[in-house]
C-alpha cells in the first residue's frame, strides 16, 4: 500500500515539474506564434490562447496545495460533532 502511495506521490512531483517546464514552453511558443510576422489573425489568436491558458494553469498549479488544504478545512468544519438523531 505504502508503495502505491509513494508511487503516486512521485508521479505528482514529476507531473508538477513537467507542468512547470511545459508552462515555460507554452509561454514561449505562445509569444512566438503571437509575434509571427504574418497577417493571419487566427494563428495569432491561437498563440494568445496558449499564453492565456498557460498563465491560468500556472495560477492553478501554484494554488494546488491551497485548494486541497481549503477542501480539507471546509470538510472538517462541516464534520463537527453532530447532534444525536431525534427519537420518534
Amino acid at each position: 500500500m505504502s508503495d502505491i502511495i509513494s508511487f503516486i506521490q512521485d508521479l505528482i512531483v514529476n507531473i508538477t515539474i513537467i507542468a512547470w517546464i511545459i508552462f515555460f514552453l507554452t509561454w514561449v511558443i505562445g509569444w512566438a506564434i503571437r509575434g509571427l510576422p504574418i497577417p493571419f489573425m487566427r494563428v495569432k489568436r491561437t498563440g494568445e490562447k496558449f499564453i492565456e491558458d498557460a498563465v491560468w494553469a500556472a495560477f492553478w498549479l501554484a494554488m494546488g496545495t491551497s485548494v486541497f488544504a481549503l477542501i480539507a478545512y471546509i470538510a472538517n468544519t462541516f464534520y463537527q460533532p453532530l447532534p444525536e438523531p431525534p427519537t420518534i
Binding site: 506521490q9 508521479l11 505528482i12 513537467i18 507554452t26 486541497f68
Partner: peptide
C-alpha cells in the same frame, strides 16, 4: 485508512493532470 490516503493522492494527481493538460501547447 490507507485506501483513503491513496484516494486523496489520486485526486491530487487528477488535479495536476488537469493543470498539465491545460498548459499543453496544442490547439
Amino acid at each position: 485508512m490507507e485506501l483513503l490516503v491513496i484516494a486523496f493522492y489520486l485526486s491530487v494527481l487528477t488535479y495536476y493532470l488537469g493543470v498539465l493538460i491545460q498548459m499543453l501547447p496544442i490547439p
